[in-house]
Design a protein around this nucleic acid. Structure first.
Length: 954
RNA sequence: GCCGAAGUGGUGGAAUUGGUAGACACGCUGGAUUCAAAAUCCAGUGGCUUCACGGUCGUGUGGGUUCGAUUCCCACCUUCGGUACCA
């Protein structure tokens, strides 16, 4: 009789729920440990086998830490606002509130069967008013603060106003958008609206007109990281540039800290590099160029001030503020045409076709070092949003400037002699300066340093650090998000709602489709949007990253009505010790969450400077996509499909690859995967358009239910083409965990996903291998049960061998869990079970601790066995076994004997045998004598307890 | 282009600081059990070579360091991920 997984798992799932086995308290004598999963979007598709990979890993770790005596916070919730939820709602026509609610129930059900130790009493959901009240509140706080560079932290905007009324902004050092100097007197003379227009340049949450990624299909603005290759990440629709007034978060104020504090984190180097590249810090100088015959100055940013003697022209971004002013009368129409041309291009066109374009403005700037007049151009390759939106072009030492100068016949003056570095690229900082007056003969490095000094002496610029990181666009012209807690007065001055007016609840409507031309759905709700006394509401909503930027704090104290979490709870839980989630959030979510955390830290609301100490990116479990080859040309009006065997031999044929549902395919995922007649019929039933299609395989043809064999073969055998790819509904290759759990049990499923390979690695799902784990579970059960399936445990003392395998397993599994090497831990459990089986061991002294050891991996079967041992308390609340080295030292060990590094023989020795004894024993070994005979022994290398190597000369 | 990660049997993958390459598992082959099957158990399983003992080649490719290299160094190839007119 075998182990009955479904009975056992149902029983304990109910038991754990009733007994609140996984409930965690905020006060405990035990040390705290916080294990967090990235919470899911509750999409309609439900979970596939890839989703739980990270959850299983974190659950094992959380359970392990609990057994090790920690008070472990391991919560779960839902990221329910945002595009995916809304897209699903739009597809189905069901209100997003209803559909997300349904989907969440489905997710909870699925997560429940997998036996996770989540404390569901702490469940949160970003779209619930009790939660987003605090998302809105944090936004109002960002609105009410600016970043003070002298204190290097956020400070209330009120103190900035005070400073303005005393001294204007002349002495203010703060992160800001746009600098116009004013005195205290000027400030006081400003109207309220003018004052707000100044303040908005300092606020951490502010409005500005920006060119944003507009997607007409989705009817919304997208964040930079939602755009991939000029297409929207979701749906792959074209994206163009559009001017709109938007809310932004001044994340750039924190750029330096976001970069520097990466050093304090226990994240993978790969991930830190991604973040650091995203922040993109570069050191250089900002320089001012006078304009010939004008008072205007053009500010440029350069990392190569040393090359200024080679700056033979300047380029402004087409959207630069000075373009109109600096355009010569006779160039007006060509410039206007060019700007129009550039503006009409979609992001996709711009990216795919990087041709060199530009037009001259007809005006000239003065090179501050050569005093020569240099022409001013505008060109696409200079970006409005980076640096100052203008460059000094040095065609001798910059590839883009070079290509531009060559195309338009502009002067090129070589200023760096790179003859000593023949392999150097054009912009590499190598070589000696030339044609550069006082810099001549200096190395590039020396020249940069000297130039920075000169620039500051002559007051034509200053050292400057620039970041690629842009301020975060925070507005979405959508329905399903947090409404901004902002109202505008009659003068269009934004005011934040006070805490007692929060949450500002998202109004209920059935008209939630995005509007055309950037019209927000909320703006159609006039009763809601328009208030008394000329006041009106902001009608955009926040993006999905808003709710996920601080959710880890809410879990600490999820029901708190007076603050986002009590200071006691935050003081106790501090930060997340282990965070597990997908690498797709490497940039956006992790960056914003770190930013918000640092802001809250500046306000003294969180004690730590970083939210996530240790981070693991689990790999993706991929699916196999099965394709049929269809000829693009129809034959007699019917589609023709070819067997992969035929198609592979005829690459000249014009095929379309049609993805088909994997359920129809035999030997799914293998090279021999094929459709039999039943499979083809299923395919036709699924896609009736192919009802009368012709299917040609090597053994014959199949059409309209009739198989015509070529010879005497009776079977049709239509080979399909298999590829590994993302598991996705659109590829019809989603494997649902429910079926696997139903067949093999959650314990087996959990262990199998861990056994597949290293947690951080992506791998295709392969159901065949699960048999091995299934056998292990059954074998494990039989260690405790006799032939009649009765629990049979011996009280006999364990022998040396039995204790050795137990203690080896304790040691190995513990160190593997600490290293997140779960696949090798599972393997050790198999070795242990195989060994105990061979030893016929059913002794309590061995099996009882082993069962606790396995509990984090297989929570159900171990709970069942633990209760059979007679314990009332859950196995998940017992104490982790401790290994004892004394059982691990074997009386004899086998070491290899090598000649010239190649193993030639083995020697069984006691581990504390002396070097001399080992050498003698090795030299007397028959095999070794054979290999050393007649040769000179040069050296004998002995690593005690490891190996002996004899070096001989022929 | 730049940055990052990785290349090990038929397959997924093991291998502390350089020290027996291929643990564990899948698959496959043979056997036991069975009327038969499922399940279970046992044995074998990197290539080549040998009746056998054994030999020999093997961790993407080519070099190097070393008594000894999957591990360290140099050059290159391939795959995957990130990013891209960032001045």
């Amino acid at each position: 009789m075998d182990y009955k997984h479904s009975e056992t798992e149902d029983k304990w799932r109910k038991h754990w729920e009733e007994h609140k086995t996984y409930k965690v308290e905020n006060n405990s004598e035990k040390p705290k440990f916080y294990v967090l999963d990235m919470f899911p979007y509750p999409s309609g598709a439900g979970l596939h086998v890839g989703h739980p990979l990270g959850y299983i890993a974190s659950d094992i770790y959380a359970r392990y830490k609990t057994l090790k005596g920690f008070n472990v916070l391991h919560p779960m919730g839902f990221d329910a606002f945002g595009l995916p939820a809304e897209e699903y709602a739009l597809q189905t026509g069901i209100h997003p509130a209803t559909s997300t609610q349904q989907n969440m129930l489905g997710y909870k059900e699925q997560l429940g069967t997998l036996g996770f130790s989540f404390d569901w009493s702490r469940e949160i959901c970003t779209c619930v008013p009790d939660y987003y009240k605090w998302t809105q509140w944090i936004f109002t706080e960002l609105f009410a603060h600016y970043y003070d560079l002298t204190q290097d932290k956020s400070v209330s905007i009120e103190s900035l106003k005070e400073e303005f009324s005393k001294n204007g902004n002349l002495q203010v050092q703060a992160s800001h958008t746009h600098l116009e100097e004013f005195s205290a007197a000027e400030w006081s003379a400003y109207s309220a609206k003018e004052q707000e227009d100044v303040l908005t340049n300092y606020r951490l949450a502010y409005r500005k007109v920006g060119y944003v990624n507009w997607c007409e299909e989705l009817g919304t603005v997208l964040a930079n990281d939602q755009v991939k290759d000029g297409l929207s990440e979701r749906g792959g629709h074209p994206v163009e540039q559009k001017a709109m007034t938007q809310w932004y978060l001044r994340i750039t104020a924190y750029a330096e800290r976001l970069l520097n504090d990466l050093d304090t984190l226990n994240w993978s180097d790969a991930l830190k590099t991604i973040q650091s590249n995203w922040i993109g810090r570069s050191e250089g100088a900002s320089l001012f160029f006078d304009v010939d015959g004008s008072n205007e100055k053009i500010e440029v940013f350069t990392t190569r001030p040393d090359t200024i003697f080679g700056a033979t022209y300047m380029v402004l971004a087409p959207k630069h503020e000075l373009v109109a002013q600096l355009t010569n009368e006779k160039n007006k129409s060509t410039v206007a045409d060019y700007i129009k041309h550039v503006g009409s291009k979609s992001e996709l066109e711009r990216m795919s076709n990087k041709e060199v374009t530009g037009v001259p403005l007809g005006s000239y700037a003065i090179n501050p070092f050569t005093q020569k007049k240099v022409p001013i151009w505008i060109a696409e390759y200079v970006l409005k949003d980076y640096g100052t939106g203008a460059i000094m072009a040095v065609p001798s030492d910059d590839e883009r400037d070079n290509a531009f100068a060559l195309k338009f016949g502009l002067e090129i003056i070589p200023v760096v002699d790179k003859s000593d570095f023949p392999d150097a690229g054009m912009s590499d900082k190598l070589g000696k300066m030339m044609n550069s007056e006082f810099l001549n003969g200096l190395s590039v490095k020396e020249a940069i340093a000297l130039m920075l000094k000169k620039v500051e002496e002559r007051k034509i610029g200053s050292r400057r650090i620039n970041y690629k990181l842009r301020d975060a666009n925070f507005s979405r012209q959508r329905y399903w998000g947090e409404p901004f807690p902002i109202v505008y007065n009659a003068d269009d001055i934004p005011e934040a709602l006070p805490l007692d007016k929060l949450p500002l609840v998202l109004p209920d409507t059935d008209d939630f489709k995005p509007g055309k031309g950037g019209e927000s759905p909320l703006s159609r709700l006039k009763d809601w949007a328009n208030l008394e006394n000329g006041y009106s509401r902001e009608t955009d909503v926040m993006p999905a990253v808003a709710g996920s930027s601080w959710y880890y704090l809410r879990y600490m104290d999820p029901q708190n009505d007076g603050s986002f979490a009590s200071s006691e709870a935050i003081e106790y839980w501090q930060d997340v010790d282990l965070y597990v989630g997908g690498a797709e959030h490497a940039v956006a979510h992790l960056m914003y969450a770190r930013f918000w955390h640092k802001f809250l830290h500046d306000k003294g609301l969180v004690p730590t400077i970083e939210p996530f100490k240790k981070l693991i990116n689990q790999g993706m479990i991929q699916g196999v996509i099965e394709f049929l080859y269809m000829l693009r040309e129809k034959e007699n009006g019917e589609s023709v499909f070819h067997c992969a065997g035929i198609a592979d031999q005829h690459p000249e044929n014009d095929y379309v690859k049609i993805p088909i549902h994997v359920d129809f395919v035999n030997d799914y995922g293998s090279k021999k995967s094929y459709l039999d007649k039943i499979g083809i019929d299923k395919f036709i039933a699924w896609r009736p358009a192919y009802k009368n299609a012709l299917f040609i395989c090597t053994k014959g043809n199949y059409q309209s239910g009739v198989f015509t064999p070529n010879s005497n073969d009776a079977e049709s055998h239509l080979l399909t083409h298999s590829e590994v790819g993302k598991m996705s509904k659109s590829k019809f290759n989603v494997i649902n965990p429910d079926q696997v759990v139903n067949d093999y049990g959650a314990d087996c499923f959990r262990m199998y996903e861990m056994f597949l390979g290293p947690i951080e690695q992506s791998k295709p799902w392969d159901i065949q291998g699960i048999e091995g784990v299934s056998k292990f579970v059954k074998k494990y059960w039989r260690l405790f049960h006799n032939e009649e399936n009765a629990f049979t445990i011996s009280e006999e003392k364990a022998n040396e061998e039995e204790l050795k395998i137990l203690h080896e397993t304790i040691k190995k599994v513990q160190s593997d869990i600490e290293k997140f090497s779960f696949n090798t831990a599972v393997s050790q459990f198999m070795i242990c079970a195989n060994t105990l089986k061979k030893l016929n061991c059913n002794k309590r002294e061995v099996l009882y601790p082993l069962n606790i050891l396995l509990a984090p991996f297989a929570p159900y079967i171990t709970e069942e066995i633990h209760s059979k041992f007679g314990h009332k308390e859950s196995v998940h609340h017992s104490a982790y076994p401790v290994h004892d080295e004394k059982y691990l030292t074997a009386s004899t060990i086998t070491i290899p004997l090598c000649v010239n590094g190649k193993k030639r023989s083995e020697l069984i020795v006691s581990p504390n045998m002396s070097k001399d004894e080992m050498e003698t024993a090795a030299k007397n070994d028959a095999q070794i004598i054979k290999w050393t005979e007649g040769k000179e022994i040069v050296k004998v290398i002995i690593i005690p307890g490891k190996m002996v190597n004899i070096v001989v000369k022929a």
